[in-house]
Computed example of a mutant assay.
Amino acid sequence: MSIILLIEQALNGLQFGVMLFLMAAGLTLIFGVMGLINLAHGSLYMVGAFAAAATAAATGSFLLALVASLVFAAFAGVIVETVVIRRLYDRDHLDQVLATFALVLMFSEGTRWAFGSFPLFLDKPEWLSGTVMLPFGIEYSLYRLTIILVGLAVAAGLFWMIARTRIGIRIRAGENDREMIAALGVNISMLYTLVFALGAALAGFAGALIGAIQSVQVGMGEPVLILAFVVIVIGGIGSIKGAFVGAILVGMTDTLGRQLLPMFFGLFMEPAAATSTGASLASMAIYLLMAGVLLFRPKGLFGGA
């Protein structure tokens, strides 16, 4: 593999990691602040993707599609939190798993009823199509580069909000001692709704961004949800910094593993066998990474930090 191709694949891994961070950030906030296991988070990713695809088809505007993904996912998050999730905070995790799994089924069937079983397609705008020339003669997709830059900007804004703003202080306080901030007069129900809506909006935004790369279809959020859980386990539950580092590690490991492992096995195996073995091990690489991190850091890289 040439150095240029390796750098291109590393950029693909960074793009994948940034997308996973948008998904995992909301999930880790929800679990860290509320102590809630939310299996329906992937459905909010799907809602954002479908809202973006439908808005783009109706208006022809990609920017309006992105705004729609944020608004509809956040609105769906508020409805879910106030109608269902609010009744689960004092229940054990098994009840939360069962209730949010039921929400997954409801979202899937509701989306299939509204949009049908066939996938939708979200076209990239012309001004984000094509490639851009990077240093060292690297030609890279302009849209994927835009995802990286937008994702990093969102991550920076999220870090700033958590660390520097009043609402960020309340979120961190709610994560550490929710009873105390409630006693100090903070409306804990409003805080929970806000956190859930923020997490839903981030997931929906990720779904809209990736919807222009792959098809938008029912059930698209569940595989990403599994990876998001891997990310927050690696990074540490409740840690935004951990979610970011974990997402980049998972994105790089998955993308580079799928390219490098078949090449490695190709040195001493037949090409077909090398490709099959390398692909199989590459699909396991992120879980081996998670096991390795937990072996030395049972709470994740930044758990409890």
Rank of each mutant, 00 (worst) to 15 (best):
G17H: 10
L145K: 03
F268H: 15
A228R: 03
M190Y: 08
P262Q: 14
A40V: 00
L66Y: 07
A247P: 15
K241E: 02
I167Y: 02
R258N: 14
A285L: 14
A206R: 05
V154K: 08
T277V: 15
M46G: 05
S129N: 00
G257K: 09
M290C: 00
D254W: 09
T146Y: 03
N187W: 03
G174A: 05
G185C: 10
V293F: 06
L29V: 02
A272M: 15
A76M: 04
F264D: 13
L289S: 02
I188T: 04
T111S: 03
A228P: 14
L64F: 10
R144I: 05
I162F: 08
V250F: 11
A212L: 06
V230S: 09
G199S: 10
L64R: 00
A273H: 12
Y45A: 13
R112S: 13
M269A: 14
F31P: 07
A73T: 01
L295Y: 04
F264P: 08
W127T: 07
R166L: 06
M263A: 15
A65M: 03
W160C: 11
I162R: 01
A228T: 03
F229W: 04
L22I: 04
G60R: 01
A208V: 12
F31L: 13
I30C: 01
F296S: 00
Y140N: 05
Q15V: 08
R172I: 06
Q259H: 12
G204F: 11
V195E: 01
S276D: 06
I181M: 08
V97S: 08
G110Y: 01
S129E: 01
L5W: 12
Q217I: 12
V71E: 02
L227M: 14
I188D: 00
F118A: 07
I210C: 06
V33I: 07
I240W: 04
M252F: 15
I210D: 09
S108D: 13
I167Q: 12
L158K: 06
L88D: 12
G168A: 02
L249H: 12
S283G: 06
M180L: 13
R166N: 02
S2Q: 12
A99Y: 07
A53G: 11
T59L: 11
S141V: 03
Y140L: 09
A40P: 05
L128E: 10
A282W: 10
L6T: 15
F205T: 07
F107W: 11
Y143N: 02
G304S: 07
S61F: 07
A25D: 05
G257P: 12
L288Q: 00
E109C: 01
I248H: 10
A212P: 06
D254Y: 12
V231K: 11
